[in-house]
């Protein structure tokens, strides 16, 4: 009986991934992580489509501590890689990458930021 299992194991052969010695890429279309292209993003024109569809608030608008400026943040820590933002973005500024080496040692390294300056009137009000 044990022999049968051994034979089976032998027939399966070596299936172990070559990673980390060599890369082991995921199949095409795998939802690894969203990526943001600042050149295409229309956040300046008031677009917040992706922020509205993101359930875990991985995409969010934040106010910079000076209290006047805002920025768009894509934070991969809470991101569930659902791809809703990619489908919703009207300009193609977001797309899905299939890479999987996402671990970071500091939360900040999981963030992509697009700064956005609000129009400030002369008396300091927005």
């Amino acid at each position: 009986m044990e022999l049968g299992w051994l034979l089976r194991g032998w027939r399966t052969g070596i299936v172990t991934t070559p990673y980390p010695t060599r890369p082991d890429p995921p199949p095409q279309g795998f939802r690894g992580r969203p990526q943001l292209d600042g050149e295409r993003c229309r956040i300046d024109d008031g677009c917040t489509v992706c922020v509205e569809v993101c359930l875990p608030r991985a995409l969010r608008l934040e106010t910079v501590p000076n209290g006047l400026d805002r920025r768009l943040v894509l934070d991969l820590l809470p991101c569930i890689m659902c791809g809703l933002c990619v489908q919703a973005c009207p300009t193609g500024a977001l797309h899905m990458q299939s890479d999987g080496e996402l671990a970071v040692r500091s939360p900040q390294d999981a963030q992509t930021i697009v700064p956005l300056e609000m129009e400030v009137s002369s008396d300091g009000h927005i």
Binding site: T17, Y19, P20, D24, P26, L36, D37, G38, E39, R40, C41, R42, D44, L76, D99, G100, E101, L102, A103, V104, R105, Q108, D109, A110, Q111, T112, I113, V114, P115, L116
Partner: peptide, 30 residues
């Protein structure tokens, strides 16, 4: 995280792999 992502994370913790992602501040389109 996929098993490969887990392996990367564990090796990174041990200093045996590189961190790929870094904080990015993107240029503005305008």
């Amino acid at each position: 995280p996929t098993p490969l992502a887990l392996i990367h994370g564990l090796l990174l913790t041990l200093g045996r792999a590189e961190q790929r992602l870094h904080r990015q501040i993107l240029a503005h389109h305008a």
